[in-house]
Computed example of a mutant assay.
Amino acid sequence: MTVSIAPSELAKSIHSGEKTTVLAAFWAPIEGAGLTLFRSEHIPTSLFCDPAMELSGIPGSAEGRNPLPPLPILAKAFRSWGLNTDREVVVYDQGRSLYASRAWWILRWAGIPNVRILDGGFRKWEEENHGHAGGPGNFPHFCNVRPNPGQMPVATIEDVRAHEGILIDARDPGRFAGRHEKLDLKAGHIPGAINIPARSLLNDDYTIKTPEEIRKYLAAAGVTSGDGVIVYSGSGNHSSQVLAAMEHAGLTGAAHYVPGWSQWSANPRNPVERSA
């Protein structure tokens, strides 16, 4: 199972009636606006996925901005999407694939094995003129799947404190260096981390780079395997994208520190490192 799917391949799958559940992880800063965007236009057969309400728990300084979703919330979402063992899942968002990557990782962590990310997102789909629909979206199929968490490696803050392997910070270089920080309480990064911005693993049009390109880029930073690697970002979105890219490149097994910098920086006892 590959990580990404091209718009042309998804279009063919939809038009031929193949068993595919398509989730649109649309987010907007105003509450409810993601659903409004979805109802305005989406890929035919899509169902709406609310990243804030269905892919995350209640935020807090002790838990981070986007902690793992509670199992009852995830089970309800599974039913509303009609997840089924005989149907592949394709996730997409408006174009950058951050929320699609979050959906990919959460679903994989919760035991859904066949999940792919639409390469280039809805923007690429529209550029290739595959057509869109409006309205409430598709009716869900019968759900025969329950969340089975723990199917992807997870790291806690204690694991990060004790970690002696490679620690990857997936945020942009400015936030990593501590030059600016608008989302979390402090600027900087966890001491010892290296910066692999999620954006660096994508092409200019936000499609994912080839496995060969990703392996070469990561190898230059000393990452040649997922073993012994922990990945974090601000709150689990950019890090999900790096983890998806690593799996795309065949570098599996890295652990995800989901609360990330939002949790680490909220504790005044945790050390902070800044770069020139």
Rank of each mutant, 00 (worst) to 15 (best):
P271G: 08
A244M: 13
V258Q: 04
W104K: 11
F122Y: 15
E247R: 11
R175S: 07
A193H: 00
G64I: 01
H248V: 06
L118F: 02
V3H: 02
P271H: 06
P51T: 04
F142E: 13
I194R: 05
L201G: 04
G57P: 08
Q263E: 11
I112R: 06
A220D: 15
E88P: 04
K209R: 14
I30M: 10
V231C: 05
A11H: 04
G135I: 13
V90E: 07
S240A: 15
G192W: 01
T2A: 13
S16M: 11
V272H: 02
F122Q: 08
G120W: 06
D227V: 12
R96F: 11
E212V: 03
L185H: 11
F122A: 06
Y217F: 15
S61R: 12
T210Y: 10
R87Q: 08
P173A: 08
D93T: 04
F38Q: 02
Q151P: 02
W81C: 00
A276D: 08
N270M: 09
G17D: 09
T252E: 08
G134C: 07
L98C: 01
L55I: 12
R116L: 03
L55N: 06
V89F: 04
A77L: 01
Q94I: 13
S61V: 14
D169M: 03
A198G: 09
K76F: 12
L185P: 09
M1H: 05
A33E: 15
I117N: 01
A249C: 04
Y99G: 03
I5G: 01
W105G: 00
R161Y: 13
E63P: 04
I30C: 06
T207G: 14
K186H: 09
K124G: 05
Y232D: 03
S80Q: 13
P149E: 08
F122P: 07
D184L: 05
Y217V: 09
R161M: 15
N267I: 15
V89D: 01
I190W: 03
F176L: 09
T20Y: 06
F38T: 01
F48W: 05
Y206H: 11
G234C: 05
A249S: 06
G82W: 02
R96Q: 12
A6S: 05
F142M: 13
L74S: 03
D119S: 12
V145S: 03
V231R: 00
D119N: 15
E164I: 14
F122K: 05
K216M: 14
S56I: 03
I208S: 09
I5R: 01
I214Q: 00
I168D: 02
P136N: 11
F48Q: 00
G17P: 07
K186V: 14
N138F: 05
G253F: 03
N237I: 15
P29L: 04
M1E: 11
L71Y: 10
V258P: 00
R171H: 07
S97L: 04
P51W: 00
G60W: 04
P136C: 12
G226I: 10
F48S: 02
V3P: 00
F139C: 10
E18V: 07
M246F: 07
K186E: 06
E164H: 15
M53V: 10
A62N: 06
A103H: 04
A77R: 00
G188R: 06
I106P: 09
A62I: 10
Y257R: 02
P153Q: 12
D184M: 14
V91N: 02
